[in-house]
Design a protein around this nucleic acid. Structure first.
Length: 572
DNA sequence: ATACATGTGTAGATACGGAC
DNA sequence: GTCCGTATCTACACATGTAT
């Protein structure tokens, strides 16, 4: 850390405290004191005129500056001092002042840069930490300085990143621009490495990137402040738990089922917990007392969340068309880039959107059901039920047992693996609507890996550190699949009166909000069915079972070696 | 202003071909 | 055969464009 006092004087304490003192010729009025104090060894660096281009500061002409420089500053070079150019303000007049100064200052060129360019003079960005430096830097002040560097010494720095510029500003002095830039780059690299020691990607993950998993794993529709509010509410409730919150709610006018409200709250709180798990340091970040910091943090997370959803909506739109077009029955073929001709008007997508309640394919009455559904005749509404056939294994279900086959359809599995594994991973999943005799064995959904090419990048699930398939991930995939079968022009939470938020909540609750032992067991086995997924296990080869196995092997080896030792000693 | 769609950049991986 | 550099590919992240 350097220290200076806007004068030649260096405080006695400065050196004792380990500061590197810098002397300064502030302006004309300090020349005598400067000459008296600044001798060989007094300091290593010298700053020169303070804002010579500004009235009320050292205020002098470039030509006068050059004279003073030659008289007082230049001779110090021979005494081992680092020389620093006049410190103009960041105003355009400062750049002009410096250019004129260099023009007038003959013989100031003392050394050369490694590139062989004439290094005219050491430059100093005038600033101080408390009030000038960072605001000016953020307004582009350092940019101007670098412009000046370029203009005066032919030194062209590689385009500095924002971080670099800020660091340069904070450093306040650029002695040798080339060395300085190189040094700062190394420092930044070091810092980055220390931030993320492991992993091939050394770049620290940005907040936006961190947010990408939120819609996929935490909540598809709720915004982050809602989740935080619910977490806060719970905390308050716990603190004053004897005081029931009856009447504290202002929802008197809209009669809400208390059980429904409680479920809503539980779901929201679960989302908060998932969020805290997904985003490293999330809870810590919330402790920040600066509301603006938190607001921008949350808005970046939200941006990432919505970006990722947007990516998924568009990629699933394409993929679904390609999968369905593989069947010759899909006539006319679907346009991968447009949902416009999908929905009820198309026989293939219509059949998949059609819930169990209706028989899309009834032939006896010449497809009247289909027609009635299309014309929204009374009592015929495709969007009245969540039991759409696209969610069912082989597209078939039983109205008397709606859970049977629900969320086991191959299209849903394809959608899931497209999002969480890779688009190409879905190719290995056999469409169960074509050959339903493969029914029960999940592995039958996957053909042998035919791709000669291995995955080239870690998949989304890995990036999100997803260790097991969660209900919310399945619900996310289900919503995206259903939506991509419609003819919606763009992503909407509600389309044709069908609420994707309600569908999402329905599927989440299907797993998370269960009454009864038998029902719980069925939901658990469904989740297990997903996690048993051979493809998914390829991605995470080291599971708990594998770790246990390796421990068992180690123990076995230990035991045998111990036994051998005993036998060896006995033989002696 | 915001959300969604589209385009660009890049990491990580393999395939290929020439030199030795 | 192996070593090494280059070309190419996939898929994610981010930037930019566009519509509402």
């Amino acid at each position: 850390m350097d220290v200076y006092t806007w004068s030649p004087y260096i405080p006695q304490k400065a050196k004792e405290l380990g500061f590197e003192p810098i002397t300064m010729l502030w302006g004309e009025k300090q020349t005598s004191e400067f000459k008296r104090l600044v001798v060989k060894g007094y300091a290593k660096t010298v700053f020169s005129f303070n804002k010579p281009n500004q009235q009320g500061q050292s205020d002098m002409s470039p030509q006068r500056g050059a004279q003073l420089w030659q008289q007082y500053i230049q001779p110090l070079k021979a005494q081992g001092y680092s020389l620093t150019s006049p410190a103009c303000t960041n105003a355009p007049s400062g750049k002009k002042w410096l250019q004129d100064f260099f023009a007038a200052c003959h013989g100031c060129t003392t050394s050369t840069t490694p590139q062989g360019h004439q290094q005219v003079i050491l430059l100093h960005l005038k600033c101080n930490f408390s009030h000038t430096c960072l605001p000016e830097a953020s307004k582009g002040g350092t940019g101007l300085l670098l412009d000046t560097l370029k203009a005066t010494s032919e030194y062209a720095p590689s385009t500095p990143s924002n971080t670099l510029t800020a660091s340069q500003a904070a450093n306040c002095a650029i002695e040798d621009p080339v060395a300085e830039v190189a040094r700062l780059k190394r420092t930044i690299l070091d810092l980055k490495e220390s931030l993320s020691p492991a992993g091939p990607n050394k770049r620290p993950t940005s907040t936006i990137t961190l947010g990408r998993g939120i819609r996929r794993l935490v909540t598809l529709f709720q915004d982050l402040p809602t989740l935080i509010r619910e977490a806060d509410r719970r905390e308050e409730e716990e603190e004053s738990d004897e005081e029931s919150d009856e009447g504290s709610n202002t929802e008197e006018d809209s009669p809400v089922d208390p059980a429904q409200l409680q479920r809503e709250r539980d779901r929201t709180f679960a989302a908060f917990q998932h969020l805290a798990e997904l985003i490293p340091g999330f809870k810590t970040k919330l402790l920040n007392t600066d509301g603006a910091v938190i607001a921008s943090y949350l808005s970046n997370l939200t941006r990432g969340a919505n970006d990722a959803r947007s990516d998924d909506v568009s990629s699933i739109k394409k993929s679904v068309a390609i999968w369905l077009n593989q069947s010759p029955k899909t006539q006319p073929p679907l346009n991968p880039d447009d949902r416009a001709l999908r929905g009820l008007q198309h026989d293939t997508t219509g059949a998949l959107l059609c819930p169990l309640e209706y028989d899309w394919d009834d032939k006896e009455y010449d497809f009247t059901v289909r027609t009635k559904l299309r014309t929204c005749e009374d009592g015929f509404d495709v969007y009245s039920s969540f039991y759409a056939r696209c969610f069912y294994k082989s597209g078939k279900g039983d109205l008397e047992d709606v859970e049977k086959g629900f969320l086991r359809g191959s299209l849903l599995v394809k959608t899931f693996s497209t999002i969480f594994m890779s688009p190409s991973s879905a190719n290995s999943i056999v469409d169960d609507r074509e050959n339903d005799e493969n029914a029960d064995d999940f592995r039958a959904h996957f053909s042998q890996p035919t791709a000669s090419r291995k995955a080239t990048k870690s998949c989304v699930a890995k990036k999100l550190r997803l260790e097991a398939i969660t209900p919310r991930a399945i619900a996310y995939a289900a919503v995206l699949l259903h939506f991509s079968l419609t003819d919606a022009p763009h992503w909407k939470p509600i389309y044709n009166g069908f609420s994707y938020e309600l569908l999402y909540n329905f599927i989440v609750d299907f797993f998370e909000d269960i009454e009864g032992v038998q029902a719980k067991a069925r939901a658990k086995s469904l989740l297990k069915w997903w996690n048993k997924n051979a493809l998914f296990r390829q991605i995470f080869p080291v599971r708990a079972a594998a770790v246990a196995n390796s421990r068992a092997s180690i123990n076995k080896l230990k035991a045998q070696r111990a036994r051998n030792e005993v036998e060896y000693e006995a033989a002696d």
